[in-house]
Computed example of a mutant assay.
Amino acid sequence: MKLSVKLLISFIAGVFLLSSVVLVIGWQISQQLSQKQLIEPQLITIKPGESLFTLLAELEQKKLISAGWQIKVLTKLNPDLAHIQAGTFMLQGEMSSLDVIYHLTQGHPHQFKLTFVEGTNFKQWQAALKQESWLTQTDYSAELAELIQPYQTAEGLLFPDTYYFTANSSAFSLIKAAFDRMQQTRAELAPQLSEQDWYQTLILASIIEKETAIESEMPLVASVFVNRLNQNMRLQTDPTVIYGLGERYQGDIKRSHLQEKTPYNTYQIKGLPPTPIAMPGIAAIKAALNPATSDYLYFVADGKGGHVFTTNLKSHNKAVQNYLKQIRNR
């Protein structure tokens, strides 16, 4: 009986000693792996099914961690550290080996971003999407056609902004996000408008967007177009002509271009063109929805980045001559 008690005491003491040794080893490893180093920004991609050992070898080779064997020991004490997740992660700044492992197991995949500027058109969006190497490129024509129905083109239906995505997201996912954002904008700004009236608003907003980059001018530009429409005057706006020319536009509008009757030549047609000519931003959309109250029928560049607005052709021609004089003086 006494022998059994002694054995039990010895066993408990042994377990306690072993536990203490394990804790001490774990603490020492943690201390060693907590030493920080400056890591230049770089991306690490973990493939689906990749093992922890393969990852540790890669990280050691790139000198992002030290003593991979110590981390293997630590994962036995803390199994959560072994649960690596597939994805692309950004490592940067002051990080220890432990920081690196925690980031790859507990952190979030890196968010890439792509910015679409107000006034760009859908072809430019598609080119930007195609050049983004972190996006998965697929034929999304069928998905796009279903998304934008009943319209035949996505022009004007996508909200220009900065969109974030993780590696291997589809290019279409950004288009879908931009489409949803424009739908949200409609719900916030003009829920009372019919589908047709909203589309007409986007057409007008896209022209405003291309005519001026000065937000404070946009309501005045909108008033000119609204006044001309109300008086059954042609809009006579160059950006629509340029859009209609497509790749034929080489930087200048010729007299023959103005005489060519296309659906987008507002020197030849009355009313708005059939579709937007670019992606309008929030300021242009608000201007189209709430144009300024004015008698203006004309505007021309003032040579200083803005425009001169006039109510009659005589005053407009004088403003044009002043602008041309400034150009010649330069």
Results as ranks from 00 to 15, higher is better:
residue 69 W to S: 07
residue 273 P to F: 09
residue 194 S to H: 14
residue 44 I to A: 06
residue 247 E to W: 02
residue 143 E to M: 05
residue 71 I to A: 10
residue 228 R to F: 01
residue 269 I to E: 04
residue 147 L to E: 11
residue 40 E to L: 01
residue 62 K to L: 05
residue 173 S to G: 03
residue 65 I to E: 14
residue 214 I to H: 10
residue 254 K to C: 07
residue 321 Q to R: 09
residue 114 L to S: 03
residue 245 L to P: 02
residue 319 A to W: 04
residue 272 L to C: 06
residue 135 L to D: 06
residue 14 G to V: 02
residue 79 P to E: 07
residue 45 T to I: 04
residue 179 F to Y: 04
residue 73 V to Y: 10
residue 62 K to F: 03
residue 21 V to L: 15
residue 226 V to E: 09
residue 132 E to S: 10
residue 172 F to R: 01
residue 164 Y to C: 01
residue 246 G to Q: 11
residue 166 T to N: 11
residue 91 L to S: 08
residue 74 L to P: 06
residue 226 V to M: 07
residue 102 Y to H: 06
residue 168 N to S: 15
residue 182 M to H: 06
residue 116 F to Q: 05
residue 128 A to V: 04
residue 214 I to E: 06
residue 159 F to E: 07
residue 181 R to M: 12
residue 284 A to P: 07
residue 261 K to P: 13
residue 201 T to P: 13
residue 327 I to S: 01
residue 219 P to H: 13
residue 53 F to C: 01
residue 170 S to W: 00
residue 314 K to W: 00
residue 302 D to Y: 01
residue 59 L to S: 10
residue 216 S to F: 02
residue 40 E to V: 02
residue 291 P to K: 11
residue 66 S to F: 14
residue 137 Q to Y: 02
residue 21 V to Y: 15
residue 251 G to A: 02
residue 21 V to Q: 10
residue 279 M to R: 14
residue 215 E to W: 08
residue 280 P to Y: 08
residue 159 F to Q: 10
residue 187 A to T: 14
residue 201 T to N: 10
residue 188 E to L: 10
residue 21 V to M: 14
residue 36 K to D: 09
residue 282 I to K: 15
residue 183 Q to K: 15
residue 30 S to Y: 15
residue 274 P to K: 09
residue 254 K to M: 14
residue 229 L to S: 11
residue 195 E to G: 12
residue 2 K to M: 13
residue 91 L to I: 04
residue 267 Y to D: 09
residue 159 F to C: 07
residue 118 E to F: 05
residue 120 T to Y: 08
residue 27 W to E: 15
residue 110 H to M: 04
residue 225 F to E: 01
residue 62 K to T: 07
residue 96 S to C: 03
residue 251 G to S: 09
residue 1 M to N: 15
residue 140 Y to M: 05
residue 36 K to V: 13
residue 40 E to S: 11
residue 33 L to E: 14
residue 112 F to L: 03
residue 181 R to N: 00
residue 62 K to R: 13
residue 60 E to F: 05
residue 308 V to C: 00
residue 315 S to W: 00
residue 170 S to I: 02
residue 279 M to N: 12
